[in-house]
Amino acid sequence: MKDQVIRILSELRPEFDFTEDVDFIEAGMLDSFDLVSLVDTIEQELGVAISGMDIVPENFNSVDAIISTIERNRK
């Protein structure tokens, strides 16, 4: 899933390298509109509905955080 998440992120913001170990939000790589687009793409591609309550920056600030969010919403 990690590769898939990195691919989705790279398609969303091709100007950034999402394999870097940085906070995507603090680094300005993702803004609130990107989160909305990211959630929609994850839902379409992975068939999981992300709870609105989970759409907060800390759940999308790294690849690991995004994977945790996806897995939590699959349960």
Partner: peptide
Amino acid sequence: SQMKKLKKVM
């Protein structure tokens, strides 16, 4: 590409 995506999502 962001615009087109947001047109649909938002």
